[in-house]
Design a protein around this nucleic acid. Structure first.
Lengths: 209, 209
DNA sequence: CAAAAAAAGTTAACACTGTTAACTTAACGT
DNA sequence: ACGTTAAGTTAACAGTGTTAACTTTTTTTG
């Protein structure tokens, strides 16, 4: 009997099929819905076979995380082409917020859930790579603006500037993701909140904006 | 045989003993360590007896959350006595950050974990009560500063101002709580990050600070 | 005071979870 | 064709939240 022709999905190595199935699950139903058995059910394997490719659930989630970090950095890399560093900064902020709000589950996993720290050995992603490390992108752009003397003189530490910009945008996104449905707070339109924060950061940090 | 003299703890109604045991657990070992069976073990009851006081684990966690919200608001209520609204704002920010960083597990449960929305029926906490609602405290102080024409003219919506201040401080705290151990980022000192954010918010929003 | 009713707790069980050990099947090089 | 290795499987363990049925304790009532 000839071997049944494999579908495209079945040709993929199992490791990536596991990641994809797990991602599908948690993107559509949230992290709580991701169970080893459900992942296995989706790809037609037994749950234990996942352990042939990942040490444990943590590792699997970190692998997903890794591809998501790459996704974010990739989506932003075109910004590095923009000439004006101030425009770059604005675009990066916009892109970051878009990513967070259109992929809330990814965002939660990436930036709102504590994991074991990513050590350089266990991770394939290259730190300080302009197309793989979104934080490096931010740092670089801030550094360029800093070198061009765009910031007010009281801000003399580019890395601190970068981390403050990140914190500001993260605050808006994180509150939106966890608390948007909460009617305790009479939330203003998310676009207004984003705009106000960006305005505040830019105006506060830059000499003229 | 006479009934054994009850200890002080045993005299407490069971409901609060459950909450306290659960809080103890998750403060010291994180939310993952909180299981119905472990809570019960600690207070010497069977796990199912918890269900006589709480519909499910969610409800129990919400009850903890509620007492924590009260804790935060209580810790801040003295600020309402301060005369100058700008000083009030600064003190409120400081207090908020202190709370977040000294009670990270509480903070995560309160502001970084999605729950079912708190409806006015299911909650004992009074919304818009100056000693029970920390968000109301923020709103009030912002409103006072707004009425005193302390903000720059381009910021004309006090609630939006309040939400932006919150987002800024939350961003710093939330990143610290989830990512402090992550050596991917060369984190600046948390005090510097807090100070920079506060400086930025105050300088950006207020006419003169 | 005793009987009935209500409240408070308990055990056993169900359907899940992540994970391990032991076993089976398939593939491949000699 | 045989032995070896890899790939997957089933069964099982210890844990989870939760429910139903049963027992004990307390309170109310005749």
């Amino acid at each position: 009997m000839p071997p049944r022709i494999k579908t495209e999905a079945e040709k993929q190595p199992l490791r990536t099929r596991i990641i994809d199935a797990a991602r599908d699950l948690f993107v559509s139903q949230g992290i709580e819905a991701v169970s080893m058995r459900e992942i296995a059910r989706r790809i037609g394997y037994s749950a234990t076979s996942i352990y042939l490719h990942f040490a444990d659930k943590e590792s699997l989630l970190r692998a997903i995380c890794e591809t998501d970090f790459l996704m974010l950095a990739s989506a932003q890399k075109h910004i590095l082409e923009i000439a004006d560093p101030v425009e770059q900064l604005a675009a990066l902020g916009q892109g970051y917020v878009r990513f967070a709000l259109s992929h809330p589950n990814h965002y939660r996993l990436m930036f709102m859930t504590p994991h074991e720290p990513f050590t350089p050995e266990t991770i394939k992603l290259q730190q300080n790579h302009p197309e793989q490390d979104a934080y490096f992108q931010l740092k670089s752009i801030v550094q360029m603006a800093f070198d061009a003397k765009k910031f007010k003189p009281e801000f003399n530490d580019p890395e601190l500037i970068a981390q403050t910009i990140w914190a500001g945008m993260h605050g808006v996104c994180a509150l939106e993701i966890t608390m948007a449905k909460d009617c305790w707070v009479n939330w203003r339109d998310i676009e207004a909140r984003i705009h106000t924060m960006q305005h505040l950061l830019m105006n506060g940090l830059l000499k003229c904006y």
